[in-house]
């Protein structure tokens, strides 16, 4: 009886194996239902879902006068500080993972706009509010502290006086509830 069962099992085997799929021929994006996004040819940014633009999205009111803008070296200084901050963050082993697969082209622009707007260097902020822009990033208090340290380093390297650094941080610190998720 066991012998005949073995025969039956053998007989049930397909005579010819199905031809193996060629891995290169499989469109894995399609397999996993991934919608491909394409960078805007002009801005280099990926498209985002529509949202209402409002300077209030910056999360802080701007400083009056031009003292802070001068302390940050105007728009050129701010752009350079933001570039350095993003470079530090994406290389910082503590928080680099958060920035992986994020649109750092758009990040550099919106972060520049935000700081430029807050220090009163003549920009409008066109990005999203802090809560929705940090949604699902899974950021912790320690991540935020790491980012603050990187921002301090970038400002220090650009010779922003310490008092002015802290004045900017004083406008950013109240946003912690919106940018820390867990």
């Amino acid at each position: 009886m066991p012998f005949s069962l073995a025969l039956a099992l053998l007989a049930a085997q397909p005579v010819v194996d199905a031809p193996p799929e060629d891995p290169a021929a499989v469109d894995w994006e399609k397999e996993f239902g991934i919608e491909k996004k394409v960078r805007d040819p002009v801005t280099g940014e990926f498209p985002v879902d529509p949202y209402a633009q409002d300077p209030a999205n910056a999360g802080a009111r701007p400083f009056a006068g031009d003292g802070m803008a001068r302390a940050f070296g105007g728009q050129d200084g701010i752009r350079s500080i933001v570039d350095r901050l993003v470079d530090l963050n994406v290389k910082d082993p503590r928080i680099a993972d958060i920035f992986r697969n994020q649109d750092t082209v758009r990040l550099r622009r919106t972060l520049f706009e935000q700081i430029c707007f807050i220090v009163g260097a003549g920009c409008s902020y066109t990005g999203r509010d802090m809560k929705s822009s940090h949604k699902d990033l899974g950021t912790t208090r320690a991540d935020l502290n790491a980012l603050v340290e990187n921002l301090q380093q970038a400002m220090r390297e650009h010779k922003v006086p310490f008092a002015a650094q802290n004045r900017l941080l004083s406008r950013l610190a109240p946003m912690d509830k919106d940018v820390v998720e867990r």
Binding site: N89, N101, T110, S133
Partner: peptide
């Protein structure tokens, strides 16, 4: 803090 990590991963397959 103000990281506007604006949009979702263009290719989130690790």
């Amino acid at each position: 803090m103000p990281a506007h990590l604006a949009h979702k991963a263009p290719d989130p397959i690790s």
